[in-house]
Design a protein around this nucleic acid. Structure first.
Lengths: 181, 181
DNA sequence: ACCTGAACACCGTTCAAGT
DNA sequence: ACCTGAACACCGTTCAAGT
């Protein structure tokens, strides 16, 4: 069921995923879906958390926690941009809060702590990193650049922008961590 | 017409703004709206660009261009968070591209240039700033925190987070500008 | 447990016609 | 220029009933 929903999504984008179309693709009456899914919202939440399972999560004990954080965010960015049709859904929910999302958040916290960020500053740093990553994924998958330029931004250029901004953010985080030590 | 749409929006959020409800609020048949508006999408675009006119735009010749950039982004953040119902729409379009959006982008570019950012780096820096600002506005207006924590983030804490992350980003931008000089 | 038929309360939008 | 009546092609969801 989730698989069929995902197929519909990649084929036609967010607006193509309706319960009725999903049902017809499964050769079934529209209401039959409600034997497998509690609501469309729930279906979308499941879809989103499923995607997050593809993120490559570095171990919490990585030698270089900052590099591991960069890898984690970059992998998240890659997974999101590889599934452009899901990114708008992500934004609409302001990030998922399924099991995988929680797991990723905890891993980030562990790495931030090992990078020297004091406990008080961990949620803050985590949020800035998440906002940067999801925001940039939205930016690079969107048809319309948000900056008023005429041409859409090329995927690889967006990726480079993401990486550069990520370095800035990480540098700020570790610098603050050093200052408070 | 725009005013009535905005009222509906603040009263009931995004999902309350339907053409039919808007029409009934104006005591008019649903299709009568199409004498004033080309489509619902266009109506939303107009609404979004209208909001951007409220942003406090510092002069391009400000003595301290970095401080002016910080002020511009902070004002944008304030305007967005003051109208939470519009932020999801913003995300769905990945930023508006109306006249006001273009104007703000140009002002940002001028300030970035005066801050010493080389021409090649201007669009990149602009995008990182925009992503950070809109992303954080989404984060703090959203009912669900994206980080898996149980309680929603308090508005003032989100504002502090935004400001801290903004400092990190700006620091990275000026440092790179200095390195390339 | 899983499906169907029928229905409810909605959507955005178009078309022809009226003033 | 602005409005209406009527319609089209959709939505998500529920309810009762069947197997």
């Amino acid at each position: 069921v989730l698989a069929a929903a995902h197929e519909l999504l990649v084929a036609g984008g967010v607006e193509a995923l309706t319960m009725r179309r999903l049902a017809s693709r499964l050769d079934v009456a529209p209401n039959a879906l409600y034997s497998h899914v509690v609501s469309k919202t729930q279906l979308l939440d499941d879809l989103l958390d499923d995607l997050l399972s593809q993120v490559d999560t570095p171990p919490a004990e990585a030698e270089d926690p900052v590099a591991a954080l960069a890898a984690l965010m970059t992998s998240t960015y890659a997974v999101l941009t590889a599934h452009p049709s899901l990114v708008p859904l992500y934004l609409a929910r302001q990030g998922a809060r399924g099991a995988n999302a929680v797991r990723l958040g905890e891993r980030m916290d562990a790495l931030l702590t090992r990078a020297g960020v004091p406990d008080r500053g961990v949620p803050e740093a985590r949020r800035v990193l998440i906002v940067h990553t999801i925001g940039f994924a939205a930016f690079s998958t969107g048809a319309n650049p948000a900056d008023g330029s005429a041409a859409p931004v090329a995927a690889e250029e967006a990726g480079r922008n993401f990486a550069r901004g990520l370095q800035w953010v990480l540098a700020g985080i570790v610098q603050d961590a050093g200052a408070s030590r």
